[in-house]
């Protein structure tokens, strides 16, 4: 039987064809981000053409009916809520990740990990419902009175607490992976010198894992930036720059989600909302690219 320069049998053709189609699909899927940026940019072009970028980003005047689109209250709202969430989440998540990686028995780890997966799977609306039922009243009745201020409870703090819980899984998951990737010899070397476990963690393990942990936190921040429904339900949605954590806020994603009904009836409104989505996308892309690059480097350094 000759096997050289065999004429293309059907199964070879199928293989070649499948390869080409799959390559095409892969390229298309990988380029989806670019397509999204272009699509959103084209839709937000009208508002970008008629307003200066600095006006859009730094004006506090949000009056769509008069054609004024100042995003500052929303940008600040997003930053406040995210800031609170990170302040709450980071210490808790790092302590948990270190505990699970360095101290806990593997059986404990096997129990806790699925629970964190479940937490990650809970839909954001359910977080929102919980926030309205538990966090908002708690702030209104307990937190605000103890500072002798009035608050409806719908506030930056409420949004931050709910958001913190929502980003627990991301930060724990990624930092746990990073910590587990630190080779055991490093720990043993330190322990053998008479260091305690905590000293070893603090001086050696954390130092090695620092870039990866930073990446985990950045991933958490970017998740917090984009979270919509849960935050929207507890944060009050008042388009003013918040002055304290007990003030209401109006983050960008909430702005987009809340106004889908009216946006087509007011000129430029839809364009402004698409711009908000574009801003969100670009900022989150930046954060993601930074943290993924760090993680990639961490992964390579281990191999």
């Amino acid at each position: 039987m000759r096997f050289l320069r065999v004429t293309l049998v059907p199964r070879r053709v199928k293989d070649l064809l499948a390869g080409k189609v799959m390559l095409l699909l892969t390229v298309l899927a990988a380029l989806l981000v670019l397509v999204m940026i272009i699509g959103l940019y084209l839709k937000s072009k009208p508002v970008l053409d008629s307003h200066s970028l600095s006006e859009l980003l730094f004006s506090t005047k949000w009056r769509p009916f008069r054609g004024q689109f100042g995003f500052l209250p929303f940008i600040m709202g997003t930053l406040w809520v995210t800031g609170v969430a990170i302040v709450i989440a980071v210490p808790l998540c790092l302590l948990t990740a270190i505990y699970l990686s360095e101290y806990a028995h593997s059986r404990v780890r096997e129990w806790v990990k699925p629970l964190i997966d479940i937490l990650a799977g809970i839909p954001s609306v359910v977080f929102g419902v919980w926030g309205m039922l538990v966090v908002v009243p708690f702030i209104k009745d307990v937190v605000a009175p103890s500072f002798k201020v009035f608050s409806t409870g719908y506030s930056v703090l409420a949004g931050g607490i709910v958001l913190a819980i929502m980003i627990f899984p991301v930060i724990i998951h990624v930092s746990l992976e990073v910590l587990r990737a630190v080779p055991g010899e490093v720990r043993e070397a330190s322990l053998a010198l008479g260091a305690t476990r905590w000293q070893t963690v603090k001086r050696v393990v954390l130092r090695k894992a620092l870039p990866g942990v930073a990446a985990a936190i950045v991933l958490g921040i970017s998740r917090a930036f984009g979270e919509t429904m849960a935050v929207l339900m507890v944060v009050g949605n008042v388009p003013k720059v918040p002055r304290s954590v007990l003030d209401p806020a109006y983050p960008l994603p909430a702005l987009i989600a809340n106004n889908y009904g009216e946006m087509l009836s007011v000129p430029l409104f839809d364009s402004a909302l698409m711009l908000a989505a574009l801003i969100l996308l670009l900022v989150i892309l930046l954060f993601n690219i930074v943290s993924r690059s760090i993680l990639l480097r961490v992964e390579r350094s281990i191999r």
Partner: peptide, 8 residues
């Protein structure tokens, strides 16, 4: 030979 058909 690069033209040879590997599956055969």
């Amino acid at each position: 030979d690069p033209k040879a058909e590997v599956t055969h």
